[in-house]
Nucleic acid binder design. Structure first.
Lengths: 210, 210
DNA sequence: GCTATTATGGATTATAAATTCCATTTTTGA
DNA sequence: TCAAAAATGGAATTTATAATCCATAATAGC
């Protein structure tokens, strides 16, 4: 008995064109769900945005839930790759401040709209969709690990005092960022994001040593 | 020409019984919207939970949006009054730590579900409902002012150094709290909340003087 | 007590949204 | 080249949900 393709409806085999269409659907859904939330985005909206028919969409995704699943993976990858250039060098106090500035600037560009692409999905889905919650938690964890990497490097290099706890600082920093993005979205100004990141970086800075 | 009751559909006059029914509807809606989100809560759900008929609900609220409006005011008042005992004495480092502990304990009780009643509404509505966004911003502002009050008192009393900026610290603290509640909800454990509040309180503590 | 106002019951309507269906075209791989 | 598999078009169906309607009961204020 050969292994069958069961599990979570593994898509059989996608042709090149098929992959493109699928990708277009996911990108369209991600865009709309970022702007209007998951519940605020109908599959018809997604069809229009991606220029596909209903049968196409349901050919690639059994149901809306599955599309949401794909959007979570997409956004997680998106955020991490967008942050990559900064995250991979987040191993000095200066780099942390540059990172802070880049994030604030991005929110200014976005006119403080949307919040965090992962955070807003998380807020909407965490309590009602267990699978989505777990995937989002895993997305946050990857982000956290990327931040942690730099702090650990600083710690090992002796740029942070021995009593600094890079793991806790990394989690606190990401958490503060999430709060900052939320309140910035609500107040439509970047000050919450700025003050919370400033405070966290000052805190981390208090562990710095030559 | 006498002033007419226009504007946002001011409810005419409510009898005692009417007020009770209305309050029951709002409380039911608030409960469900906290658990399932606004879009995830149908007005039929609210009817069931509040034990009222459709005509009752639409007698007190023109449309769902108006009910949501009432829920926002309700939750804001709810959170502030629940926090009141602690917020009104948030004027020492010890009091800040007690407040931290109380919040963490509450999340443990709630099994890390739900997040912040105001924050989750904010995340869902901020970008799509301008009126709601403004009301939520105002709710957060009240909360921020309550926190700020204690820090300013400490500052004036000389318990915080002159270069401490109570206004910024208060906003940063509330912002950090929001991030903590969100990540705690996603990870289903209180560590994000703990580490971010610990970091913020340590930061505030670094301004302390006898 | 009487009348205007408010409150309630519950069926009904209208619409929006998710999902299915079947026919047709395109692509793949032997 | 040709059959099987994949991709697409678009209408049709079903279900969920918001909102309306009209009749009846309760209450307030004179």
């Amino acid at each position: 008995m050969e292994t069958k393709n069961d599990g979570p409806k593994q898509e059989q085999r996608l042709t090149k064109k098929g992959k493109e269409t699928r990708a277009r659907i996911v990108a369209a859904a991600a865009k709309l769900m970022f702007e209007r939330g998951v519940a605020g985005t109908t599959v018809e909206d997604v069809q229009r945005e991606a220029k596909v028919s209903a049968s196409q969409l349901y050919h690639y995704f059994q149901e809306k839930r599955e599309l949401v699943h794909a959007v979570i993976l997409f956004q997680t990858a998106q955020v991490l790759s967008a942050q990559e250039p900064l995250l991979s060098h987040l191993d000095s106090i200066d780099a942390l401040w540059s990172w802070r500035d880049a994030i604030v600037s991005l929110q200014v560009e976005r006119q403080c709209r949307g919040g965090c692409p992962i955070g807003s999905l998380a807020s909407e889905l965490a309590d009602s969709e267990p699978v989505a919650r777990a995937e989002l938690a895993s997305g946050f964890m990857k982000w956290e690990l990327a931040i942690r990497g730099g702090l650990i490097a600083m710690h090992e290099r002796g740029q942070l005092r021995g009593d600094a706890e890079p793991e806790r600082l990394a989690l606190a920093l990401l958490t503060a960022l999430q709060g900052g993005l939320l309140l910035t979205q609500v107040h439509r100004e970047t000050s919450p994001l700025e003050v919370v990141l400033d405070a966290m970086l000052a805190h981390i800075g208090s562990f710095a040593q030559s």
